[in-house]
């Protein structure tokens, strides 16, 4: 993990420069023009409102900085970088999934798989599809299911070796080297959010025919390159970790702490998945979890998920 100061500085610079890019130098004219056009142009404002979740004031400008309306992705990224300047104990990462906006595209699922180089049988964020009703009154819903990062995670106390635990960021993470692969935590998770890595690769049975086709050796590089979970590298070789371990979503700690949104959030085409620091009252997520239509999965279990759903 990066030195806290370094992170702060880096994100500070990024932030300032980004805003400068938006406002200053060559971009200034365009940005200001945009801003002005927006102010007195109802249709464009509609476009802007549409792009961004309206802040309580009805304008997103206050929370997004002075740069003018931005995609919620940008707003969240800036908020994230703001949160990184606080001590880890002062922030509370939460994810908000707006089921009204989720279109069941599974981009988040695949982005997560690609980001974390998940092997066959390992998935951190499947999207569950439901259909109901009688023709022509039919309904359909899509429910993405990352790890809930429970504040009372049933998966943690069952681990015999402390290989899974809540880290300083409040994220339930894995210590791959410690884990003995007993899979107790898997049975304990009420959300099916943990899976075992059985050691497969997608290209494992592919043919090899040098000079004729690309073949396995030419094709499987991307699967073998390191993944980056927990800021460590794990090249997929032999039976070493994470093969044999339990695995789970970690709210992309390796990205978040470097100032980037989780991979599933950043690629959400429905802008249904939101992420941020709930302790920041100006953050989008803080605003969203105060909505009346908010709920959490299997609330009755008392797990206190950090993943909220809007319905």
């Amino acid at each position: 993990m990066k030195d806290q100061n370094e992170v702060e500085q880096a994100s500070d610079v990024t932030r300032r420069n980004f805003l400068k890019g938006l406002m200053g130098g060559a971009g200034a004219a365009a940005a200001v023009a945009a801003f002005e056009t927006l102010a007195d142009n109802p249709a464009i404002l509609l476009a802007q409102d549409a792009a961004t979740e309206p802040a309580s004031s009805g304008s997103v400008l206050s929370s997004a900085g002075e740069g003018g309306p931005v995609d919620v992705l940008e707003r969240m990224r800036l908020e994230l970088q703001r949160a990184l300047q606080k001590s880890s104990l002062d922030r509370r990462w939460v994810m908000v999934i707006d089921l009204r906006k989720c279109v069941g595209c599974h981009a988040c699922t695949i982005s997560c798989v690609a980001e974390n180089k998940l092997p066959p049988g390992v998935v951190y964020r499947p999207v569950i599809e439901e259909e109901w009703g009688i023709y022509p009154n039919v309904g359909r819903r899509f429910v993405p299911r990352p790890c809930m990062q429970c504040e009372n995670p049933p998966c943690v106390p069952v681990c015999p070796v402390g290989a899974t635990y809540t880290n300083e960021e409040g994220i339930v993470e894995m210590n791959y080297e410690r884990c003995i692969g007993c899979r107790y935590c898997i049975t304990a998770c009420p959300y099916g959010a943990r899976v075992a890595d059985f050691g497969f690769t997608y290209n494992q049975d592919m043919p090899e025919a040098d000079g004729l086709i690309l073949g396995q050796a030419g094709a499987d590089d991307y699967e073998r390159v390191a993944n980056f979970e927990y800021g460590k590298s794990y090249e997929r070789e032999g039976r070493g970790s994470p093969v044999g371990n339990a695995r789970k979503c970690h709210f992309c700690q390796h990205r978040v702490l470097e100032g980037a949104l989780p991979a599933c959030v950043t690629t959400c085409i429905g802008r249904a998945t939101l992420f941020g620091d709930a302790n920041d009252p100006d953050s989008l997520v803080a605003e969203m979890i105060a909505r009346p239509n908010v709920m959490r999965l299997r609330e009755e279990l008392g797990t206190e998920p950090r993943v909220y759903y809007l319905t």
């Binding site: 106390p157 015999p160 070796v161």
Partner: peptide, 26 residues
Amino acid sequence: LDLGHPERFWHVLLYPDFSSMITWMV
């Protein structure tokens, strides 16, 4: 042999977490 990492069996003895029933069991 049911463990994903049997070779780390000793972790239970060295890093036990007694909140886990498996620790107690082992």
